[in-house]
Amino acid sequence: MKKVRVLVTRFSAMGDVAMVASVLRELQAQNRQVELVMVSRQHFEAFFEDIPNLTFHPIFPEEQHKGPKGLWRLFQELKKYKIDYVADLHNNIRSKILTLFFKTAGYRLGILDKGRHQKKDLIKRKNKILVPLRPTVERYADVFRHLGFHLKLGNALKKKDRPVPETFKSLLNHSGKNIAVAPFAQHPYKVWKLSNWDIIFRAFPTHQFYIFGGGRQEQETATDWSSLHPNVHSTIGKLSVSAELDLISNLDYMLSMDSSGMHMASLVGTRCLSIWGATHPYAGFLGYGQSINDCIHVEHPNRPSSIYGNKSCLCDGVEAIDLVSTEMVIERLKGIL
């Protein structure tokens, strides 16, 4: 069968790029003739490490690939791969400029339909249309179907066999469960009150919790939790992205916000309970293979207020994320532990 080479672009955000990896893994498994060139930020390369016949090409949007001139430079770099198709899975200003260069050069293109109108109907305050939208992973898959490839998404978790990072090997040998926790997110309206976590950690003293994600401030918070609770361990600043995936694959569950942690759990086949506030799983961003039954949230007419969680979502004077009580989370955890 003749080999074909597909250029795929998705530059951010972290969770969206992780979902692309889930789709590309399925695409390659069902179309062995396909060779992939993935263009994204270098920090996300680990998401694609185990996909056969995939070459990762980093974009540096703040450096040599900044602005139209930088994107022209990137275009010249990518042409050397002698690609057959271009799949734009981002459809933002930067990817549109790059795609225009390829279109002008005569390449066959597939471009993501973000479903903007449906999403606007989902988040508007009046006459909101609260129905499940097409999942983002299916929208990604549609791009490849448009290009003529057969692709059927199984949307199932597949547990990955990965090594345990040396730093954490000794901690996994105990009688309780090992639970990943991703309590932070880019936007505050997607973050559960940090004080709630002390209650969660105390409620399950025989189980071990591993904190993922965040920068210096989040690292300090995780360190404080670790000093207060002997069953809490921070991974922040200690592991590469690849090693984080290694550890998550060896844990029993993840408890996450609507954030990249959920999508990293999907990449390695770990079941995730997720807490939702200003956003809603109906928007199509539930982790690949994760169940909507594992979403912890309280329905309210004002939800969701935004697709990405960057806007306040007051529900009778209370932020939507704060409608989720510690009792609700404890009950859901007890149901699976």
Rank of each mutant, 00 (worst) to 15 (best):
M254C: 14
S249N: 02
E244H: 09
I248G: 13
S227Q: 15
H229L: 07
G261L: 11
G237F: 07
S242D: 09
N231G: 04
N250S: 13
S259M: 09
L239E: 08
S234H: 03
K238F: 03
S234C: 07
N231S: 01
H263A: 03
E244L: 11
P230G: 13
S256R: 00
S259D: 10
D252M: 09
D252V: 01
S259P: 01
H233N: 14
T235I: 10
V232R: 04
D258H: 05
S227A: 15
L239H: 01
S240T: 15
D258P: 09
V241W: 00
D246T: 02
S240E: 08
M257R: 11
Y253K: 02
I236N: 13
L247P: 04
L245Q: 11
L245C: 06
D258G: 07
S227G: 10
Y253Q: 01
Y253R: 03
L239G: 08
L255S: 03
Y253N: 03
G237W: 04
K238H: 01
H229V: 09
S234E: 08
V232S: 03
M262I: 00
M262H: 05
S259F: 09
S249T: 12
H263L: 10
P230E: 14
H233I: 05
S260A: 15
Y253P: 04
M257P: 08
S242M: 07
S259T: 14
D258Y: 05
L245P: 14
N231L: 02
L247V: 03
S227L: 15
S260E: 10
S259H: 05
M262L: 13
M257W: 10
S249R: 07
S227N: 15
E244K: 04
Y253V: 01
A243I: 01
S240N: 12
M262T: 06
S240L: 10
D246W: 11
S242E: 13
E244D: 15
L251Y: 05
S259R: 09
N250K: 14
H229T: 07
A243N: 10
S242T: 03
Y253C: 00
M257I: 14
Y253T: 06
M254S: 15
S259N: 15
N231P: 06
D252E: 10
S240Y: 03
L228S: 12
M257V: 12
L251W: 06
P230Q: 14
H263C: 09
G261I: 11
D246C: 09
L247E: 04
N231V: 00
S234Y: 06
L251I: 02
S260H: 02
S249D: 06
P230I: 15
N231R: 04
T235S: 08
A243C: 10
V241K: 05
H263I: 05
S259V: 05
I248S: 07
L255A: 05
S259I: 03
I248P: 08
K238N: 06
H233W: 12
S260P: 00
I236Q: 13
M262R: 00
G261E: 02
H233P: 13
